[in-house]
């Protein structure tokens, strides 16, 4: 596995840094969940932590917001140590933990009024309801909401405090594509108003579409950090041509095509890595039988992750 230090991306530790993490480790008994992790999140950016399940993303986020104690390392969030100054951070940082449920029998409006009452200068609940697209469901009880609506309400409870920083643990898990797009719009609008957002995800698409910068995390370590396009250019510049394995040309024949640098089997698809995608695609299409469901695209963060770790984002880390 290639490990890249974050130093090349490190901004200086100034007021424009919202989160600064150095050498963070967390043990659960003898199990190492976070392994000397370094991270800097700049103020006003939408920062993604990308990694497979079990990579240590949730643990790291929970340490940052004071829900968990770290084993070692230094953490500074908006100038405070979450272990020592949680009171202050609870006023400045809004959190959406994974697997948190709201009061099931309150309505959307009642829930947001309740959350607004916890803060000194909250937003108007009605305005937030409108922004997250829950106006039609404002009088529905939480347990009657769909998964997507409940996720949006959770984000709304985070936004209502006018937080300087919002931390979201896999906010779009379980959402359909429309609900996910709506959620992204809400988060981008928050960022555009000057807010800083840190979110974890195992969705490469979410990281690429939403985040200004991304830290790729594996086995509790940051293995790469930067803007998505920059990471792709640096680590996975090759194009990928993929097609369905069944009813397609023989793999050995594909490997023999000039310009093919690597082939791999991924589920029921064949992935062909090349820097000459146009020529390779034409060659593939002229073969018999012709490749089924052929898709061609430039390298993405999934390729970055594969290059850096030798695994895919769909792989779950044991333990």
């Amino acid at each position: 596995m290639t490990t890249e230090q974050v130093s090349e991306e490190d901004p200086p530790h100034t007021a424009t840094t919202s989160i600064s993490v150095h050498g963070l480790t967390k043990y659960y008994g003898s199990v190492l969940a976070v392994d000397g992790l370094d991270l800097e999140v700049r103020s006003g950016e939408l920062f993604g932590v990308l990694g497979p399940n079990g990579a240590g993303k949730s643990t790291m986020l929970e340490i940052l917001v004071g829900l968990r104690e770290r084993s070692s390392g230094t953490v500074e969030v908006l100038g405070s140590d979450p272990s020592n100054d949680r009171e202050r951070l609870r006023r400045l940082v809004a959190v959406q933990p994974q697997q948190a449920e709201l009061f099931p029998n309150l309505t959307v409006r009642e829930t947001l009024r309740l959350w607004a009452s916890f803060h000194e200068n909250p937003e108007e609940p009605e305005a937030v309801i409108e922004r997250v697209g829950l106006t039609a469901s404002a009088d529905h009880r939480v347990h009657k909401l769909s998964g997507g609506q409940e996720r949006r309400l959770l984000v709304a409870t985070a936004l209502i405090s006018r937080p300087e920083l919002i931390v979201l643990d896999e906010p779009s898990t379980g959402l359909d594509p429309n609900a996910r797009a709506d959620l992204w719009d809400v988060l981008l609008a928050y960022r555009d108003r000057g807010g800083t957002a840190l979110l974890s995800t195992h969705s490469m698409e979410e990281a690429e579409s939403l985040c200004d910068r991304v830290a790729v995390v594996d086995s509790g370590k940051v293995v790469a950090c930067g803007a998505p396009a920059e990471l792709v250019t640096r680590h996975a510049p090759h194009d990928v041509v993929s097609f369905r394995r069944a009813g397609s040309p023989d793999i050995e024949a594909v490997r023999a095509i000039p310009g093919v640098e690597e082939t791999e089997l991924h589920g029921n698809r064949v992935l062909v890595h090349t820097s000459r995608a146009e020529e390779v695609t034409n060659e593939l299409m002229s073969m018999t039988p012709a490749p089924q469901n052929l898709v061609r695209r430039t390298g993405g963060l999934d390729s970055v992750f594969r290059v850096l770790t030798g695994r895919t984002l769909d792989d779950e880390k044991d333990g």
């Binding site: 917001v65 829900l67 009171e87 609870r90 006023r91 940082v93 809004a94 959190v95 933990p97 697997q99 948190a100 449920e101 709201l102 009061f103 099931p104 959350w115 916890f118 803060h119 959770l154 409870t157 405090s161």
Partner: peptide
């Protein structure tokens, strides 16, 4: 029950 549903955990992230 609220603790098991992690509603209390969510409340703990507010100034309450």
């Amino acid at each position: 029950d609220l603790r098991q549903r992690r509603t209390l955990r969510l409340l703990s992230t507010t100034p309450l």
